[in-house]
């Protein structure tokens, strides 16, 4: 469960303070699929960095499964990321010239898990994303964009995180492939995963069950998405 209470975030350059987030409060329960929407410059990326424990707020409190993340030091944040958070990036960020399985198992390397167990867990995660088993030993740069993003999703899932955080996951994909990725998220949500999707596109946000609009560092609206788009029929490529 995520609890954000009166989050403020400012960037400083010299004496100049640039406020980015101004008193943001919300709560996300386990099993929700939330889209955080806003134009560029609205502060949604900064909010994602705080939710993903990549950064800490200037003021306010952020509780992730009861842990107060807002006051943590660098290495403690790394520990929280490793145990509780799975990231999916717009640019996939896979290691080139490394196999699919090795890419997916990478977070477990830092958990010091034995190799055989790591690979087993990586394969389980890959199966959840619906990637064809014949591609497991391909190099990551031999895959198509949609396949790469599903490998990235599997990597985010492999450590069984409390929160799956996706930052514009369809930004580098065409509409069709984007649909496949989004339906993968929906499938994962159906199995009980908590997913937070950050996007500036309405069509993408419409796949979530709840949409938080953010603008100029403040929450504009926070409502249940009455018209959720589902594309269950097109899960397989």
């Amino acid at each position: 469960m995520i609890v954000c209470e009166h989050i403020f975030k400012s960037y400083f350059s010299g004496d100049l303070e640039t406020p980015v987030l101004k008193d943001v409060s919300f709560q996300i329960n386990d099993g929700e699929f939330v889209a955080i929407m806003g134009p560029s410059g609205s502060g949604k990326s900064t909010l994602m960095h705080i939710l993903g424990a990549l950064d800490t707020p200037t003021a306010g409190k952020y509780l992730l499964d009861g842990h107060d993340v807002s006051k943590m030091a660098d290495d403690e944040l790394a520990e929280i990321r490793r145990k509780k958070i799975g990231f999916v990036f717009q640019a996939f960020n896979l290691l080139p010239r490394a196999s699919v399985v090795r890419n997916v198992a990478l977070p477990l390397v830092y958990a010091e898990m034995p190799k055989a167990q790591r690979e087993e867990q990586a394969k389980q995660a890959l199966l959840q994303t619906g990637l064809d088993e014949s591609r497991f030993n391909h190099l990551s740069n031999q895959l198509s964009g949609g396949q790469m993003q599903r490998v990235a999703i599997a990597r985010a899932l492999v450590n069984n995180p409390s929160l799956l955080l996706a930052d514009e996951p369809t930004g580098n994909l065409d509409t069709n492939t984007g649909e496949i990725v989004l339906s993968t998220f929906q499938k994962l949500n159906a199995t009980g995963r908590t997913i937070v999707l950050i996007t500036h596109e309405h069509d993408v946000a419409a796949h979530a069950r709840r949409i938080i609009h953010i603008r100029d560092g403040k929450i504009l609206s926070d409502e249940v998405n009455a018209r959720q788009i589902t594309t269950r029929s097109r899960v397989e490529e």
Binding site: A78, R81, R82, N93, L106
Partner: peptide
């Protein structure tokens, strides 16, 4: 640099 960023995002500590 990006690879280092990714490794940190998925839980690598400074020492790692």
């Amino acid at each position: 640099t990006r690879e280092i960023g990714l490794r940190k995002a998925i839980g690598a500590k400074r020492g790692d």
